[in-house]
Design a protein around this nucleic acid. Structure first.
Ligand SMILES: [Mn+2]
Ligand SMILES: [Mn+2]
Ligand SMILES: [Zn+2]
Ligand SMILES: [Zn+2]
Lengths: 143, 143
DNA sequence: CGCCTTATTGCAAATACTTGCAATAAGCAG
DNA sequence: CTGCTTATTGCAAGTATTTGCAATAAGGCG
């Protein structure tokens, strides 16, 4: 399976697979949702009180860099992370009601193609938050 | 002229045009570039040492909310602001060499139209930073 | 299994930015 | 111009996240 294969490859690259890293990765892998650093810290330290919040932050950064996690700023005061499962997607966030929708990656792929064509720039917008007004709030405003 | 008209309209809405607000707005209006909160603070406090850093942060938020400033996260550890002159644009930022390019708004307008059509969502991506690899760094990598 | 190298952690301090609250000063009326 | 209301400021404390450094522990080797 890809997951364990990736993990072993990281060890070959000189990274160390510490208890802290595995705990955080497994939590996010089983959680299937966005989580913030302090939520992760709260969960993990339940069973492993020795874990440190600074380590959580550093581990999240590392897991993101090696491509195992995705990161997003949904306009709250905290960043959110999710396990990088196969389905690439982005989020539409309504500034009025706060509603969040997932949208498929190919909407953005067209943009990527345009930018590559016109500017020779290879944009890699991974897991983006787009703000605006949702259909319902737009309808409500035309009352 | 539009600028002074906008300013007077704000007063009518109950906002107060304080010395601090005008100083920061004029600095950015004449600067024609992105500036960070602490750069702005350094500049303004040169001639007005009584100004407070918290006020700079609050004023930047307010100027952004009322549409006089644009805001951007270019991946450094600070947010940047610029005067909202007419030319709407976005930035391509190379993760390899750090190079920043401006791109015209209409590249993103196509994306906006697609999202509106498919999801009924009115996205308002104003002054966005797109990360990736620039043409030069891509060429260099195929050596 | 024990030893060694060094990547990673824990802890405490720092940084960018936000916020509660009492003091100040816009700006409108008189 | 003077007084009054209350939006805004200054200051100090708080929050999310980062960072320097000494202590710890992965994991390769014998
Ligand atoms: Mn997501
Ligand atoms: Mn700009
Ligand atoms: Zn909505
Ligand atoms: Zn480049």
């Amino acid at each position: 399976m890809r997951h364990h294969h990736d993990i072993q490859a990281l060890r070959k690259q000189g990274f160390r697979l510490t208890r802290q890293r595995m705990l955080i990765l497994e939590l996010l892998r089983s959680s299937e949702r966005h989580m913030t650093a302090d939520q992760i810290y709260a969960e993990v330290s339940q069973h492993h009180p020795e874990i440190n919040l600074a380590t959580v932050y550093r581990t999240l950064q590392w897991l993101h860099q090696v491509g195992l996690l995705r990161k997003i700023d949904v306009g709250k005061d905290r960043l959110e992370y999710e396990y990088a499962h196969d389905a690439e997607h982005h989020h539409l966030i309504c500034k009025v009601c706060g509603d969040q929708t997932q949208i498929d990656n190919h909407v953005i792929q067209t943009l990527q193609a345009h930018i590559l064509e016109h500017y020779g720039f290879e944009a890699d917008p991974d897991h983006v938050a787009l703000f605006g007004r949702c259909a319902q709030c737009r309808a409500a405003e035309t009352e």
